[in-house]
Every structure is written in C-alpha cells, then in structure tokens.
C-alpha cells in the first residue's frame, strides 16, 4: 500500500529522494502517512486538493481489494 503512494508521489515531485511513507494498520483501516519536501507539498496536493483526492481514491481502490478502508495523511 505504501509503495503505491510512494511511487505516485515520487513521480510527481521534484525531490523524489525526500519522499517518505509509513503505513500503519488497525483492524480494517490502513493509514498511509506521506511526507514530501516542503516545496513539493503543493504538487502532491494539487489545485484544490485534486491530486490528493485522486491519490486517495486510487489508494481506496487498492485497499478495497483486501476489504479495508484507507486513509492518506499528508504530513507537513
């Protein structure tokens, strides 16, 4: 799950080496925490959060395979 988010984030930012992801799960929820370089925050969030929304729905689809709910936290 976190590999997916990391891959997408790395493909979108200017500093892929600073992309970090962590995954925690409890019961039926997967939480992926995404950290990117400060300059790149806007790139993973996008205009009016469009990119973040798209990443979330892709993550949701991936989590859906294991019948889990998902959460994406973009950390500052």
């Amino acid at each position: 799950m976190k590999e997916l988010v990391a891959y997408i984030a790395k493909s979108l930012v200017d500093h892929p080496e600073e992309v970090k992801t962590a995954e925690t799960g409890e019961d039926d929820t997967v939480t992926v925490e995404l950290t990117v370089a400060k300059d790149d925050l806007g790139k993973v969030i996008g205009k009016q959060g469009r990119t973040a929304r798209a990443i979330r729905s892709i993550l949701a689809a991936a989590a859906g395979k294991e019948n889990k709910r998902s959460r994406l936290d973009i950390l500052e």
Binding site: L12, R50, T51, A54, S57, K65
Partner: peptide
C-alpha cells in the same frame, strides 16, 4: 469493477494521476 470505481471515480483518478506523471516524463 474495482478499477472503475463508483461512477468511474477510480478510473478518472487514475487517468488524472497518469496524465500528471506522463506530463513530467
């Protein structure tokens, strides 16, 4: 079914992200 999502939501998200990735590549 899983990749289409409700009303094509997942598909549209995929398309949007892919466009962004490709635009950079």
């Amino acid at each position: 079914e899983a990749l289409t999502g409700q009303d094509g939501k997942t598909l549209d998200s995929l398309q949007y992200i892919l466009r962004k990735i490709i635009a950079r590549k």
